[in-house]
Design a binder for these strands. Sequence first.
DNA 1: TTAAATTTTTAGGTAAATCTAAAAATTATT
DNA 2: AATAATTTTTAGATTTACCTAAAAATTTAA
Lengths: 220, 220
Amino acid sequence: MQSFTEENYLKIIYHLAEKTNNVQTNAIAEQMQTKPASVTDMIKKLAEKGFVDYIKYQGVTLTDKGKNAAVDIVRKHRLWEVFLVDKLNFKWDEVHDVAEELEHIKSTALIERLDEFLGFPKSDPHGDPIPDKNGRFAKTQFTKLIDLKISDQGTITGVSQHSSAFLKHLEKLGLTLGKQIEINDVTDFDGSVEILVAGKQINISREVAKHILISSNGKN
Amino acid sequence: MQSFTEENYLKIIYHLAEKTNNVQTNAIAEQMQTKPASVTDMIKKLAEKGFVDYIKYQGVTLTDKGKNAAVDIVRKHRLWEVFLVDKLNFKWDEVHDVAEELEHIKSTALIERLDEFLGFPKSDPHGDPIPDKNGRFAKTQFTKLIDLKISDQGTITGVSQHSSAFLKHLEKLGLTLGKQIEINDVTDFDGSVEILVAGKQINISREVAKHILISSNGKN
DNA sequence: TTAAATTTTTAGGTAAATCTAAAAATTATT
DNA sequence: AATAATTTTTAGATTTACCTAAAAATTTAA
């Protein structure tokens, strides 16, 4: 069994590995809010325990064992988020920090019963897929809103930014999961995007558009 | 804010203080499954932080601050137990260890919403009272089954032992919370007790009878 | 009321996760 | 390809919660 801290490292390495193959020391340090020297120490320990493959100065990759451990934590995190939103009426911008703690509770029975209690949800309040108890989940194919062309349509099915500020902003704009949108125009000046949502036309910044994930359902 | 370990010390001191005024180092060590020397270290730290009053060789008592912190943990523990039994269908003998972990999740919003979700329960699956958000709760007056006289009647409203083995045993005997019982006889030989429950007459050992709590409702 | 037993504390050390400062390796730039 | 910049690692400390062994205080028993 891994410690609280080891679990956090594994989870962060897992998420970083979704973007780059070899995860760098500095990147981990930034995510863990710690210093690179500390990361090197921990990486050695995780390598000794067989959770990561590590070559000095070359960064780390998760082993199968490490990947399984990480996916398990991700599963717990996302299930707890569903619980908080569906059962305790938290908003989608309020759940991250609490789930960050709950994900470390060690009880297989707990998480399986929670899963059942929640009706075996397939995705969390931010649209991220929830692995099943064997760690399997569909690799959903999303398009970033920013990559759509004028007159493209689609449904908001996820976000790639979980900060409270960002999520609150989306909420205020009415850009929540499941909403249908259509691209009306892209501004030359600042790259902001004019979209049609719920019959209204709104303008969102490039930065916002980058972090909204769309599942296309027409004209693409 | 206190650490995980500090919280466990406070909780244990709180429970020990329900029996004796000055809580002894050895007693804490036993409950914490650690050595007396370690307890002395931690006590000093808790005293410095103002959670306990401490005089060398005289044991500790909780300050108001310490008591509040402890009651808060007890509240969380018991609410989570209700959640596990009522919502996730855990048995009353399966919840202790998981609640032991969940009680350390730090979020006031979480625990208040959980309380509401559960319908503001007044007691946990073992009959122990749940403090409200201001730390107040009724000091319920229980009689131990062992202290009842022949022909006394009452209702099982709690247990003073939370081990899985004990609770499973009670379950098998049909001695669960809310059951009406009547004392038929007390065996001279071994002090075991003959009781009438749900129309059937059963014999329970002195040791079991010690840990069943009864709220009397007649002939006392 | 002194000796024996028990309880508690002190002293000195360990392991986990962190840090700073400096050295080493890698990558980028001229 | 040599130098500069960046990244990563090493070395040596720190903090928290724990340990063992021995000393000190308290309690119990003769």
